[in-house]
Write a protein that binds this DNA or RNA. Structure first.
Lengths: 138, 138
DNA sequence: CCGCGACATATGAAAAGTCATATATTGGCC
DNA sequence: GGCCAATATATGACTTTTCATATGTCGCGG
């Protein structure tokens, strides 16, 4: 009846990783069912509502990937007709194509719906939780 | 002065992922400096204090990886002399070797120290946060 | 105007991860 | 006892990620 003494069950970073993983699992399954990889979704979500485009480095930072990984992901997304690259100075602005924007809009709508369910389950706690998370992300 | 309208800045799953990533960044940098990959650390931390061993499937679940990924990670860790496999019935019990246990103990100590700093920065909030995260992890 | 350091992105070779499926082991049923 | 479905792990072909570094682009001193 005693609590498990396992280190990883109490370790904050493990709890964060586990919570993130578990909370995302449902939506990630929907993405997979639609044939959209998680990194692709992250890029689409980031570009959604950024009509002037976002640079490769910014995308990498926001999507929590490294820059070369992002460059290659963008190669594939460009090949799939989801985004275009536009050189601007020394950086590169990444923009959604029309099909890319359409897909992004659909997925963001699904994500919002999915989030609403999650938030409903944790009714009052959401704002405080989000504030804490932002703080941790500091 | 208005809040950024970027979807990803308010999306719970993105906040979770970002908080997890940011909070772990410091410790992950220390791991890298010691030449220990994050997945290796997760396995060591999980096996720490499990003298009777843990199965491959359990390890995969706890470490948030897929089973074949874990099998191959264990191949490398076994080759590096950190763990041994011991067949038990149809499953496989993974045990730390002496060097593996030594490394695990060191790293867990560092992790605890690192966590203490994080928790100190968010003094009172920690228990509530951990409870919320456990809840989210369902 | 040319060259040079700084910043931004791309690329090549190697490592790790993924998906589907093969192999191994057990327990139960006839 | 041998066969079969169920469970646990391993493996092979392929994709993605990573690390280090190359390439490209700007701003500036001379």
């Amino acid at each position: 009846m005693r609590e498990s003494p396992r280190f990883v069950d109490g370790y904050l970073l493990a709890l964060l990783a586990r919570a993130s993983h578990a909370a995302s699992a449902g939506f990630h399954a929907r993405l997979k069912a639609r044939g959209v990889a998680v990194p692709v979704w992250r890029v689409l979500a980031t570009l959604q509502g950024a009509p002037q485009g976002v640079t490769v480095g910014e995308l990498a930072g926001i999507c929590l990937m490294q820059q070369p990984t992002m460059s290659k992901l963008l190669d594939r997304m460009e090949a799939d007709g989801l985004v275009v690259r536009q050189r601007q100075g020394r950086s590169m602005r990444i923009l959604l194509t029309a099909p890319g924007a359409a897909l992004a809009a659909e997925l963001v709508a699904e994500a919002r719906a999915h989030e609403a369910v999650l938030l409903a389950r944790h009714a009052g706690a959401a704002p405080a939780l989000k504030a804490l998370l932002r703080d941790l992300a500091g």
